[in-house]
Design a protein around this nucleic acid. Sequence first.
DNA 1: TAGATTGTTAATCGATTAACAATC
DNA 2: TAGATTGTTAATCGATTAACAATC
Lengths: 213, 213
Amino acid sequence: MDKKVSLAVIKRLPRYYRFLGDLLDDGITRISSKDLSDKMNVTASQIRQDLNNFGCFGQQGYGYNVELLFEEIKSILGLNKTYNLVILGAGKIGQALLNYVKFEKRGFNFIGIFDVDPNIIGTKIRGLEVKNIKDLEKFTKENNVDIAVLAVPKANAYDIYKNVVEYGIKGVWNFSNTELEKEDGVIVENVHLTDSLMTLAYKFNTSYDFIEE
Amino acid sequence: MDKKVSLAVIKRLPRYYRFLGDLLDDGITRISSKDLSDKMNVTASQIRQDLNNFGCFGQQGYGYNVELLFEEIKSILGLNKTYNLVILGAGKIGQALLNYVKFEKRGFNFIGIFDVDPNIIGTKIRGLEVKNIKDLEKFTKENNVDIAVLAVPKANAYDIYKNVVEYGIKGVWNFSNTELEKEDGVIVENVHLTDSLMTLAYKFNTSYDFIEE
DNA sequence: TAGATTGTTAATCGATTAACAATC
DNA sequence: TAGATTGTTAATCGATTAACAATC
């Protein structure tokens, strides 16, 4: 596929996937872009445009086969593969993520959790022993680590990120409240909880108006 | 202020705020849009356009006073006020958020945490006793609750959201993996962790190309 | 077949970038 | 004052929406 897909489209894919999953659960086998657009509060045009970035999954006069489309999007999102993740930082956020079973159901497997705190190192969380972060390099050599979950305090984030890149890990899910500079071939996905809360605070106040999503 | 500000602009504000805070920490007192744009990897034009949605904070020939601009954005984001939050769902995510001290530093105070599980109700987390979610209505009458943090499983999210709206809470920070329908006067800010991870998975694979942020 | 609905091209809308006069 | 840099208008770019021929 030649043409680059815009990030706006990509970010809508998980939402399509979620709605199609719900339709499947409800036993609905086909849906038109119009009906889906009513459900999702987007335009039918946008749905068709979005999907046609990846292929022709519909049929004139019929619409889309729900299961087929669901599977297509699953595959586009890369959810047919499995991923090995390590959690860096065994604090509350790291633990919370490790305990969230949904991720494993979708093929994101946590194979290691690391920390610097000697009081935490050696303890077990959900059957996984917390390792010393100094052993991360060795661990990455012995295991195939796809994604590092950065759940460390802001102060340590930069150094640990540098290590992660050095050890050859290609995906970073960043929960530390910092900007991580772009590195060639490394994908960073940020979850800035503080930013999200600030956006909520902004909308909460009426001093300035804003355009609704 | 008349003209509506686009969501794209609003979502950039926390990032400006973060960078200006860093500049302040570094003792930098003034900055031009050009210099800031180099640091932030955006265009100087965009910075000036964004800021001018809210006022004229700069000075020709000089640039922007860092502290002044920092304070302006703080005020625009509504961070001069304090907010009372309740956490609904005392699972790992709820606990992780409650333990994240940064939020309190910025004026987001957790005044209650609720759950349905009798084994958790009554226990204390960070000095706060977990209450029965059935007591939420009473609690909202006796306390001024601004924001409810929805950290419950997907299955319960809809009902609890309905209650939250009914009790008159005007802000919802939604961590449940569901769509919450729009209600008049209620602000919902979603944190869809699963979506974020899927986006990472997409980018991680090279089968389709994409435009970088 | 006739009706429905796609895939796709064209039109519109909005957001980003460029340019520059105003002015500190 | 001269240089720097803003605020703002105009130009460009991209994304969303509308329209419709193709076709199941």
